[in-house]
């Protein structure tokens, strides 16, 4: 892929991820558990990682988190999405090469758990009470469920994108 094309694709993916992120923020939380959400913008991070590279996906993620906080969040949500995003990105980088593309949902599930773990750590630092650990099990479970969902979504998106001979 030509350099210009990669840059255009990165910009496009960032814009899409940001849109998804802002729209998802407008929808009220489906379950009243702090930290549980679908994380649909992660679909784009996964797609960027497969179509482009780890580094470029990291850039897309970083810009999305920073601009997402500017558009939709507050300083405290920035802290959580940054902590979750950083850990999820690290796990994605480590595992994406280990699995074939049709097993991308496993990568995504692991990243989902890592994302929630990062959020929980940030939460513990903020609230300064070990009691938040009560949420660790349900956050691990929800990380797997939402991770598999976004992973499958990313796989279907990749399949469709390949047909367009991007």
């Amino acid at each position: 892929m030509a350099k210009t094309k990669r840059l255009a694709l990165m910009a496009l993916l960032t814009a899409i991820a940001l849109t998804i992120f802002v729209i998802e923020n407008q929808i009220p939380a489906p379950v009243p558990i702090p930290g549980v959400k679908l994380g649909l913008a992660n679909i784009i991070t996964l797609v960027a990682m497969v179509l482009l590279s780890r580094r470029e996906a990291g850039a897309v993620l970083l810009v999305r988190i920073l601009m997402g906080a500017m558009f939709a969040g507050s300083p405290s949500t920035l802290l959580f999405s940054a902590a979750g995003g950083a850990l999820a990105y690290a796990v994605m980088c480590l595992t994406v090469g280990l699995f074939p593309e049709n097993r991308l949902w496993v990568v995504s599930a692991l990243a989902g758990v890592a994302h929630n773990a990062g959020q929980l750590i940030a939460c513990m630092l903020v609230v300064k009470t070990p009691g938040v650990l009560a949420y660790a099990p349900i956050l691990a479970a929800s990380g797997v469920v939402t991770g598999v969902f976004t992973g499958l979504a990313a796989m279907y998106l990749l399949r469709a994108l390949r047909k367009t001979k991007l």
């Binding site: 758990v113 099990p137 349900i138 956050l139 691990a140 479970a141 929800s142 797997v144 469920v145």
Partner: peptide, 9 residues
């Protein structure tokens, strides 16, 4: 993992 998480919760 999901099952353990739900049971623990």
């Amino acid at each position: 993992v999901v099952l353990a998480g739900v049971i623990a919760t």
